[in-house]
Computed example of a mutant assay.
Amino acid sequence: MAEKVRLAGKEKSELWFEGAVTVVLLLMLNFALFVLLKELVDISQQLQDSIWSVKNVLTFGQDKQHLWSWRSVFMGVMAIVDVIVVYWRLIRRYRQIQMRHVIRELHYIADGHLDHRIQFKVNTDLQKVINSINALVDSTVNSMQEERRIESSKDELITNVSHDIRTPLTSIIGYLGLIEDKQYKNDEELVKYTHTAYLKAKQMKVLVEDLFEYTKVRQTTTPLNPVKFDMIAMMEQLAASFELEGQKHHLRFVVSGRPNPLMMEADTEKLGRVFNNLIANALKYGKGAHHIFLNAEEVGSEVVIKVQNDGEQIPNDSLSKLFDRFYRVEGSRNQETGGTGLGLAIAQSIVTLHGGYIYADSTPTMTSFVIHLPRTLGQTLKPAQKVKNQ
């Protein structure tokens, strides 16, 4: 709660002293001016024969009761001037004291108390300075927190990558070591060891490629190559390319959309990576699913795309973490499903590069990944539009 600057006893005494000194100096100045003016009046009195107008305007003390005598006018004017000067001096001194308080608070913050804010309320331009200082401290704290978050994120990335690379690498070294030491009984066992090492090497290659892709699309300067295309035609091509794999999992693709054709502008190569990751996820983790639905609709200036499956529901506490890198719903670090945990993070980064956003929703009957993209590349969707329709 902002409050006025509270003066200490010493500061109140400083104001009283400032006022007293000012009054004394003004009285001395008034007396000097009074004497000087009296001398001028005496001179004019001696020249009254030649300057008769002065005699008519000024009374020279004979009529002491005259309301407009020069003494009354002088004293009235000087009293007003004195009050103004005293008030101005006191206000100036008070503002200097306020500034000292602000500087003291600023030094306190600079000493490392970044959770402290200046709570003074003043009626001058100093309030703008106070507000600017508080805003600057807030910005500094936010930058420091963001820097710590980035450092923590880097450490986490290194830890996760090291773990995911070490696991297959250990297997590769182990099996190649067995081959090197000729610890195999026959050629069949040799082929088995070699094949296992090969699969683990491919697993490492997938991780490295995903990591490279993730770091590339995370950069806001990553160039996009926009082209105009039909989104529904693209989804039909994707469904056809995954048809054989879908049959292995007893899944059928259903493509729909409106209007047809649905023309838009985007980097189709990068957008294809998004859909590949989402469909691959549905094939791997959509337990009990019978269909994968691909739907696109034009809504105002944006295109809303849904990749859905009617498989097992994703737990609510996992939905907000799905797009975190290396996160897996099953909560384990094994890679039995062949995933690196980077697919959805890559998809989110690519969608963001296009000025859109993506989120997940899951119910007992349907799991949906919903993408909002602007129809024209370069347009960024407003945060107010990022509202999930339940």
Rank of each mutant, 00 (worst) to 15 (best):
D155A: 14
I43D: 10
A360N: 05
R328W: 03
Y357E: 08
T170V: 11
R218W: 02
K10C: 07
I158L: 13
K388G: 01
V227K: 12
P383W: 06
M1P: 09
V191M: 06
I358A: 02
R95Q: 15
L90V: 15
V24Q: 09
K228P: 03
F275L: 12
S332N: 04
V129W: 02
G338V: 12
Q385A: 14
I371R: 05
P226G: 01
A32H: 07
S318P: 12
F323W: 13
T363G: 03
F369P: 08
E146A: 07
N123Y: 04
V102W: 01
Q119F: 01
D317M: 02
R258M: 15
L199P: 13
P383E: 09
E336M: 07
V77P: 11
D42A: 06
Y175N: 14
R252F: 15
A8Y: 07
M204W: 01
L176N: 06
M204K: 01
Q247P: 13
H66W: 13
L25P: 12
E14L: 05
V307D: 02
Q379C: 12
V24L: 15
G246W: 09
Y285I: 14
D361T: 05
K154N: 14
L238P: 03
F229V: 15
E330I: 10
G343L: 06
L344N: 03
M231W: 07
L114A: 03
H250V: 11
F326M: 13
I103L: 00
V307C: 04
N30C: 10
M144D: 14
E11I: 07
I173N: 10
L157T: 11
Y94H: 05
E213W: 08
L271N: 08
A2M: 03
L353Y: 02
M28K: 08
T380G: 09
L58Q: 08
V141M: 11
I158E: 15
L190W: 08
A2I: 03
D49R: 06
L373I: 15
H107Y: 07
L90R: 04
V86T: 00
L224F: 10
F120N: 00
Y193I: 14
K200N: 13
A79M: 07
S301I: 14
F120D: 02
R375N: 06
N281G: 01
L244D: 08
K306F: 03
L26M: 15
H372R: 08
W16D: 04
R89A: 06
K228M: 02
V86D: 00
M231E: 12
E330R: 04
K121M: 07
T352F: 13
M234I: 13
V5P: 00
M28H: 10
Q247R: 14
G343W: 06
G174R: 01
D115H: 11
V77H: 05
F275R: 08
P374V: 07
V57R: 03
E236M: 00
V85G: 00
D42R: 04
K128N: 06
R6W: 00
Q183C: 05
G76Y: 01
V351D: 02
N389G: 15
